[in-house]
Simulated assay, not measured.
Amino acid sequence: MLQTVGEWIWWERLWLPVSVSWSDLEDKEGRVYAKASQLYATLPCALCLLVIRYLYLATPLANIWGIRDRIRLPAEQNPILEKYFRGQTRIPTQDDVRSLCKKTGWPERRVEVWFKRRRNQERPGLRKRFSEASWRCAFYFFAFVGGILALYDVTYRMKKIHLFIPIQSLLPSQYWYYLFEMGFYLSLVFSLTFDVKRKDFKEQVIHHMATLTLLSFSWISNYIRVGTLVMVIHDSSDILLEGAKVLNYAKYHRTANGIFVVFTAVFMVTRLIIFPFWLIHCTWVYPLELFPPFFGYYFFNIMLLVLQLLHLYWAVLISRMVYKFIFSQVCLQMPLCSCVWECVGMCGNVWNILFNLSSSYFHPAAGR
């Protein structure tokens, strides 16, 4: 039974084009190909990244910058209010407050203060938020640099190989890049339970699982170049977001505000323009000029569309934040024109880097 299921799962017509078989991806003549067994290394890599995060980077950096949590007054012990807080709502209405006053014998002001202090107890401290943001910023920065180097390495050595043709020899730079990226996202899945809980928690879970599924599929089927491009495009804006958070927590508000505006522009360009109209367009259109459609073709592109839907969701949230940021003038301490010029420059740099390193990937004539 298990053998039958395994044969069906690894049926090459599911994951590979008609003209390609698993035997074509076996090491031979000095050419090394990606193997499914190599993905086992992502688990120890994820655990190592967690150790580095908590013992050698995030916490020591918080100590160096002098990040301390604010002292918060604890809520008084009250079983009635505690039960209501956990079972009903964290923010009671005025009618609810009056009802709780009758049950506890407390005045309204005391009940309101209790709920405020109780909510503060659930909120993550400044030190925890700084540690998480600094870790992500550091990883995204080095991952982005590694992705650019991996793209350059592949472009330099194998210019004539098409993006969606899986007969590609694996390079060491690609292996380590995939290993650390997958290990990082797996570590985020492990740390979801004790990381800062956000409003988009469910979307974060879907994003991490879709990313791991997409990367695993692209690795097993040897579509490594397109997977590298997907990761580089994502990391380019994530660096700025986490960097803005770090500076904001460290009370460099003016710089953080400017970087957040730059992040917004880079996010919109990379996630809403480059990703759908360039990368997804190429993975949908060009493969059909070389192969008939197969299951892996649809599966791969559907996972990319799932990521794009999440991009649209986050783009709406970011747009709302920017609207409040600009028109309510909350912490707006730098001229808007300066922010705009920085955005234009950053977006242009990201576009030029990606275009120059991978423009030859997407034209079908490049693989012929």
Score class of each variant (00 low, 15 high):
L55F: 14
L73N: 10
G147Y: 04
L81Y: 00
D235L: 02
I224E: 02
R68N: 11
R72M: 06
R254N: 12
I165G: 04
T93R: 12
N78D: 15
G243R: 04
W65P: 00
R136L: 08
L163V: 07
Y297W: 14
K103C: 05
T264C: 12
I161A: 14
C347G: 00
W219S: 10
S319K: 02
F362Q: 02
L305K: 02
S236F: 01
S99W: 06
N248D: 06
F115H: 01
F139Y: 12
A244Q: 00
A36S: 10
G367Y: 01
C48Q: 09
I67V: 15
I52G: 06
F277V: 01
T104I: 04
P172Y: 02
A133M: 09
H162K: 10
P276H: 09
Q308L: 13
L61P: 00
Y156H: 12
Y33I: 00
Q308Y: 12
C337M: 09
V269G: 03
W351V: 15
P92A: 12
K202Q: 11
L240K: 06
T42S: 12
F260C: 04
H208E: 07
L47R: 03
L61A: 13
L332E: 07
H363V: 13
S37D: 11
Y178H: 11
E7G: 07
E289S: 07
P293E: 06
S134W: 05
F194A: 01
Y140N: 12
V266Q: 04
M346S: 14
Y152A: 13
Y323P: 09
E112W: 03
L39K: 07
I206V: 15
D195K: 05
Y298L: 11
